[in-house]
Simulated assay, not measured.
Amino acid sequence: MEYKVRIKNLFSRENVIDLLKGGRCTIFSAASGEQLLRPYIPGTAASFSPSTLNRMHQFNAGRPPVQETHDYALYYLSSKGGMEKDYYLVDSRCLIYDRQIQWAYWETPLIVPVVEGLEVTAAQIKAICPPASMSNIKKHVTHLNEAMRKYKINTRLRQAHFLAQVAHESDHFNTAREYADGSKYEGRLDLGNTEPGDGKRFRGRGLIQLTGRDVYKKYGAYLGKNFIDGTNMFQVEQEPYASDSAGWFWLIYKKSKDINGRADRDDVIAVTRAVNGGRNGLTERIKYTNNAKTVFGIS
């Protein structure tokens, strides 16, 4: 299927064209000192080597994207000057903006194959996390599948790591709210807790517990919702947000940690550090990851 048809349509909208027109030329300097004076065009002789492309992604990682959603990140890459065309990098594919006709289009068709059979069942989650009750699993399984589709947890190995982490963080799917009352977070400026009572208000919620005013605000901004005022923060411990927030944390909030990349390398310790900040519960996280790999037939 086409890669989110609405994205193709999005680039035809006037506000996005205005956004692209406002880009300024950026020259990428490779490690060799050579400057990027040509665009990245997949599938052509002008394409870059994997090592150069990797440096390009590292370069972009430290810069805010021009546009970002849960589906893609759009980075300004280079300009061809006299040809009146600007080039943008979108998930390793090239988007071209023609300044003369004020139109954006894909250099190559943006096609992503549909991977069938990645739905996870309640029985599989039970096998991954035996202490979990089937009734609790069934509260979340549909929403977990949607979150994994939405946030690119789209291989069996990624799912194995994600579900293992979620199983531990939620105490075997027993809770989507931190057991402690949050008093220990009071006055934690690093969490954005600047108002009296913020510690308790913004205690950990969701299947991977979002903690602190700052992360609740960012998650709400991403969805276009308000999780700050009144009792809105309680929504994060309820579905669909309990599962969705876990996926958002995994892919968006911890983007710099590249948790999917760590999962692709099958590095439980690295995934745990990105999720937890340390090695808390590592033995159980390893156990559930191994269970999931067995369930999914990963050798």
Rank of each mutant, 00 (worst) to 15 (best):
L95E: 08
C94R: 00
V120M: 10
V112E: 15
L77D: 15
G81I: 04
L77I: 09
F59V: 03
A61L: 12
D98S: 07
K85T: 09
S49P: 11
Y75T: 00
M83V: 07
A104V: 03
V114Y: 15
P65D: 03
S51R: 13
E68G: 02
A45V: 03
Y105C: 04
L53W: 09
R55G: 15
H70N: 09
V90E: 05
D98V: 04
P113A: 12
R55I: 12
L89A: 07
A123N: 14
T44I: 02
E68V: 02
L77S: 14
V114W: 14
V120Q: 08
S49K: 15
V66L: 14
A123H: 14
V66G: 02
E116P: 06
N60G: 01
M83A: 12
Y97T: 00
R55N: 15
A122C: 11
Y88V: 03
E116S: 13
T69K: 01
L110K: 09
V115Y: 10
D91H: 08
A122T: 13
E107I: 01
T52V: 13
C94K: 00
I101L: 03
Y97W: 02
N54C: 07
M56W: 11
L74M: 03
I111D: 14
T44A: 02
K80D: 09
Q100G: 00
D86K: 15
G62L: 15
L77N: 15
F59M: 11
G117L: 04
Y76L: 01
P113G: 08
R63K: 14
T108V: 10
Y105M: 05
H57Y: 10
Y75Q: 04
K85Y: 05
N60A: 14
A61W: 11
G43Y: 03
T108Y: 05
Y88M: 06
A104M: 04
S79G: 05
V115F: 08
H70M: 03
D98Y: 07
G43F: 05
E119S: 13
T69N: 08
Q67W: 12
Y75I: 01
Q100V: 00
S78T: 03
S51E: 15
Q100A: 00
R55E: 15
L74V: 01
A123P: 06
E68S: 10
N54H: 08
L95I: 05
R55V: 10
D71M: 04
P50N: 07
E116W: 12
V112H: 11
R63L: 10
A45Q: 07
F59C: 05
P113Q: 10
H70K: 09
T52N: 10
G81T: 05
T108P: 03
Q58Y: 09
R55S: 15
F48Y: 14
N60S: 13
E84H: 13
Y87L: 07
A61P: 01
K80H: 06
Y88T: 04
